[in-house]
Design a protein around this nucleic acid. Structure first.
Length: 294
DNA sequence: CGTTACACCTGAGGGC
DNA sequence: TGCCCTCAGGTGTAAC
């Protein structure tokens, strides 16, 4: 679900709830693949720990703790982080949200069976909830100095990566350019929405073979990706299915998206119907005119 | 080694 | 109403 912009919005909102605070209680659901560190170990390890910093690395959130260990969070497809103080976070589909929107009275977040992690803090800090319906997300504790293949494997952060870097990586690869953008070891943070949006802005068809792009195109593509993601962060991210900000409100970027999940609707530039295909087992959307095959 | 297929999960929405 | 099917902001791994 969440990509770099959503993770960055989440990080900014969650940071003041975590940093400088000491964990008093840890609640979890039962052992599952969601917990790379078993719930019992997690509880023992986190209790009493003070959070020093909360950083984003690609699509991961990394909390540094006062004993030098780190708490790793990944939200997979449907992960959500909420602060306890939020009013009425609407947790289901847009349709269900619309239905429940008529309910006007405010409610505090209520943990349900999908709320897999619950952190309480001392000194009256707000509680923190991690909810993930599909459990594609992951939680892990790294001991002081412990390395982690998942993190080590990540490429340059997508907000920092240059077109020259993308070009250098693209030259060696025969996969579709869209698949290359989604490869977290090349550039970290881009997901399915922003890959499609960036390719549209750069006028490049997602199916084009990566190594056949010019240096100029790689520069334009990387710049488009950065522009789109920075704008999305400004608007609070894309709320299309499950994503909500930690404060419970929708993001705004879903209203600015130009191709993602707009199949059949007119291109904003040329009116041609947007096409949906599948590339690398993921849905891909593009304008057949503005993003030429060759 | 690069590329591709599939597995991991659940709930919403559409067709019959 | 209910069943069955398809679909989804991700990623690790097995198999070619």
């Amino acid at each position: 679900m969440p990509e770099l912009p959503e993770l960055e919005v989440i990080r900014r909102q969650i940071e003041p709830l975590m940093v400088g605070r000491t964990v008093s209680r840890v609640g979890t659901t039962a052992e599952s693949n969601f917990f790379l560190t078993k719930p019992a170990v997690l509880k023992r390890h986190l209790s009493g720990r003070r959070v020093r910093a909360l950083e984003r690395v690609g699509k991961y959130l990394v909390a540094s703790l006062d004993d030098g260990s780190r708490l790793l969070l990944h939200l997979g497809m449907t992960g959500q982080l909420f602060g306890a103080g939020v009013d009425s976070p609407r947790l289901s589909s847009p349709v269900a949200r619309a239905r429940s929107a008529v309910r006007t009275e405010k409610q505090k977040f209520k943990p349900d069976l999908h709320t897999h992690l619950r952190l309480s803090f001392r000194d009256g800090g707000q509680e923190l909830f991690l909810r993930d319906v599909r459990r594609f997300g992951r939680v892990q504790v790294l001991k002081p100095g412990e390395s982690c293949a998942r993190l080590d494997r990540l490429g340059v952060d997508a907000l920092v990566a240059t077109g020259a870097h993308l070009f250098a990586m693209a030259r060696k690869r025969r996969i579709a350019i869209k698949s290359l953008l989604l490869d977290q070891s090349v550039v970290a943070g881009i997901g399915n929405i922003y890959a499609d949006e960036a390719l549209f802005l750069a006028g490049i068809r997602p199916s084009r073979t990566a190594c056949r792009l010019t240096g100029r195109q790689c520069i334009e593509l990387m710049e488009a990706a950065r522009r789109v993601m920075l704008r999305s962060i400004e608007t609070g991210g894309s709320s299309i299915r499950d994503y909500l900000q930690p404060n419970g409100s929708d993001g705004g970027y879903q209203n600015e998206r130009l191709v993602y999940a707009r199949a059949g609707r007119p291109c904003v530039r040329c009116e041609s119907p947007i096409v949906r295909t599948v590339i690398g087992q993921r849905p891909a959307h593009y304008c057949p005119k503005c993003q030429p095959a060759k």
